[in-house]
Write a protein that binds this DNA or RNA. Structure first.
Lengths: 164, 164
DNA sequence: CTGAATCCGCTACGATACTG
DNA sequence: CAGTATCGTAGCGGATTCAG
């Protein structure tokens, strides 16, 4: 499971450091990529962000994370727990109560996630602008291409006519 | 497409700022979540990270990003281009050559991505440890539960015997 | 209330073939 | 070389049901 072999620790140091020295291992089975895929998924980010403020119960999370299914929330939480990012505390009351809380490790992760979210918030307008600009450009190019095709079509007919 | 309405700019400010003032909008149709889902996906992170060092051609990227299919690379690049994160430069030579390069906006994003990758590299051992600990604990609990079930089974038989 | 388990549609993805 | 188009499939994820 943990395969603490020496093959790779998830990153690699460029042996010939041409320009910037360190480049991270992009291999598919690389540990870093696996962790990244896990934490950078749709729901984990949200859950971690929400748990930063205070511990939450299962249902509270379910309510706060719009659109998540029970299944995916449970799955996400189990993954986060397994990775040591959240703790799961069961109070043997009736009805049962389960609290989820960020571990110190999870808290450090939240810092960088917050940076990512901040970036998104800061630049969402730029992105929206870029998107519409792109869409307009593509639409233009398509119209252009159609005109071009039509023109070539006409030329082709003319050539055929002169040939025939 | 850009719907620059006033409904939501992707974040919201808590009207009653009980504790921490700002909480980002977790609604599913929220702009921030959409952007986040887009940039925090499996391939975008890798592509942006690779393009930080220098511009790359399509095939170079394909080679460097282990495991990506032609289809997904093309799609990812188009998304990034649309979001204004990379530029696509076509050299009308033969054979054709297309260079992809990070825009200034993309470069700023790479900063926060680098932070995320760094976090992963720094803490991957902790995560690996947490994982094996979790796996062991789960296995133990399962064995425990099995013993428990067996014990109850025996008890049940004894009760049945005394009843019968 | 907090899940686990089952069923299942859907689509995202990879493989392949084709175009310019 | 740099893609698009088409197709088949595995697995994601939602709805539902059951259990503790």
């Amino acid at each position: 499971m943990e395969d603490g072999t020496s093959r790779s620790l998830g990153y690699c140091v460029d042996t010939d450091a041409d320009y910037d020295a360190r480049q991270w291992d992009t291999r598919e089975d690389c540990e870093v990529r696996q962790i990244l895929d896990r934490i950078a998924d749709k729901w984990s980010l949200l859950v971690i962000a929400l748990l930063d403020r205070r511990s939450l119960r299962f249902t509270e999370l379910r309510r706060e994370v719009d659109g998540i299914s029970q299944r995916m929330l449970a799955r996400t939480l189990r993954h986060l727990e397994r990775d040591g990012l959240v703790t799961r505390t069961v109070y043997p009351t009736v009805p049962p109560r389960v609290d989820y809380e960020l571990t110190p490790l999870g808290a450090t992760l939240h810092e960088t996630i917050r940076a990512l979210v901040s970036w998104t918030e800061t630049h969402q307008n730029e992105i929206a602008t870029a998107r519409s600009a792109y869409d307009v450009r593509i639409a233009d190019e398509q119209r252009q291409a159609e005109r071009e095709a039509e023109r070539r079509e006409t030329m082709g007919r003319r050539v055929s006519a002169s040939r025939g």
